[in-house]
Lab assay of single mutants.
Amino acid sequence: TGEEYIAVGDFTAQQVGDLTFKKGEILLAIEKKPDGWWIAKDAKGNEGLVPRTYLEPYS
């Protein structure tokens, strides 16, 4: 299990392996990579890379 984050903006996948999401979606951070791209999972179970700058902790 990971930590929940809320998307603060829309993001469209730029390449294969990225995860597209919309502002307000809750994402589960699976792995926090030091380069600023995290592996996350959305509510539908889709998994991919997301930019850290689009996420804020969800409580």
Rank of each mutant, 00 (worst) to 15 (best):
V8F: 04
E31C: 12
F21H: 00
E31F: 13
T20K: 04
K41R: 15
A13G: 12
E56W: 09
D10T: 07
I26S: 03
V16C: 11
I26Y: 05
V50Q: 00
T12A: 09
A43Q: 13
I26D: 00
A7Y: 02
Y58K: 08
G36E: 06
K33E: 05
E56L: 11
L28S: 07
Y5W: 11
Q14F: 09
I26H: 06
D35Q: 04
D18F: 15
K32M: 09
K23R: 11
E4C: 14
K44E: 11
E31K: 12
L19I: 04
E3F: 11
K22A: 08
T53W: 15
L27I: 08
E4I: 14
T53S: 15
D10C: 07
Y58H: 10
K22G: 06
G36Y: 05
P51F: 12
F11H: 07
D42H: 02
T53I: 14
E3N: 12
N46E: 08
L55S: 00
G2F: 14
K33H: 12
P57C: 08
L49Q: 09
I30G: 02
G17I: 04
D42N: 13
K44Q: 13
K33N: 12
F21C: 05
A13K: 06
V16H: 12
I39N: 05
K22P: 02
G17C: 06
E56K: 12
E4A: 14
A40L: 09
E47H: 10
A43S: 14
P51I: 05
I39C: 09
L19T: 01
E31V: 14
G45E: 04
K23S: 07
E3R: 11
G17M: 05
L27P: 00
Y54K: 10
L55R: 00
Q15I: 09
D35V: 02
E56T: 10
W38C: 04
A13V: 03
L28C: 10
K22M: 09
L28P: 00
K22T: 08
L19F: 02
F11M: 04
Y5I: 01
G45L: 03
E25D: 15
E3Y: 10
G48D: 02
I26A: 03
T1Y: 14
W37E: 03
Q15F: 10
Q15W: 09
Y54P: 02
L55G: 00
E25C: 05
G17Q: 06
K23I: 08
T20S: 15
V8M: 12
E25I: 03
P34W: 10
K33T: 09
D35G: 14
K22D: 04
T12R: 08
D10F: 04
D18E: 15
W37M: 09
D18N: 11
L28H: 09
I6T: 05
K44W: 15
V8R: 09
K44I: 09
P57K: 11
T1R: 14
G24I: 02
W38Y: 06
I6D: 00
I6R: 09
F11Q: 02
E3I: 11
E25A: 11
K41E: 05
A43I: 10
S59W: 12
G48Y: 03
I6W: 06
F11I: 04
L28R: 10
W38V: 06
K41L: 10
P34Q: 11
R52K: 14
K23L: 07
E56R: 11
T1E: 13
P51D: 14
L28I: 15
G45W: 02
Y5C: 03
Q14V: 12
G17L: 04
K41T: 07
I30P: 00
G36C: 08
G24L: 02
I30K: 05
N46D: 08
Q14A: 10
L28D: 02
G9S: 15
G2S: 11
Q14H: 09
E25P: 00
K22Y: 10
L28F: 12
E56F: 09
L19G: 01
W38N: 00
P51M: 09
K23H: 06
A29Y: 04
G45M: 04
A40N: 01
V50R: 01
P57V: 09
D35K: 03
I30S: 03
A7Q: 01
G45N: 06
A29L: 15
G24F: 05
Q14S: 11
E4L: 15
T53R: 13
T53V: 13
R52G: 15
A13M: 06
V16L: 12
K32Q: 08
A13H: 04
G45A: 04
W38I: 07
Y5S: 01
K23T: 09
A29P: 06
G36V: 03
G36K: 04
W38G: 01
K23P: 03
E4N: 09
A43L: 11
I6C: 07
Q15R: 15
K32I: 08
K32T: 06
K41D: 01
L27G: 00
E56V: 14
L49K: 13
E31N: 11
V50L: 03
D35F: 05
A29W: 03
I6H: 03
S59E: 11
Y5G: 00
Q15L: 09
A7C: 08
P51A: 06
V50T: 03
Y58V: 11
Y58R: 08
A7F: 02
D42T: 05
L19S: 01
K23D: 03
A7L: 02
E4T: 14
K41A: 08
I39Y: 12
D10P: 05
L55E: 02
A43P: 08
E47W: 11
I6Q: 06
G24P: 01
E47L: 14
T20Y: 04
G2M: 13
G36A: 04
L27V: 05
A40S: 03
Y54R: 07
T53P: 09
V8Q: 07
G9Q: 15
E4P: 13
E4F: 15
A40W: 03
W38P: 01
V8W: 05
Y54I: 07
G2I: 12
T12Y: 13
E3V: 11
W38R: 00
K44D: 11
A40M: 15
D10R: 03
E31G: 07
W38Q: 02
S59H: 14
T20V: 04
L55I: 08
K44H: 14
G24D: 06
Q15A: 12
T12L: 10
E25W: 09
S59M: 12
N46W: 06
K44A: 13
K41W: 05
T1I: 13
A7K: 01
L27T: 00
D10M: 03
G17T: 07
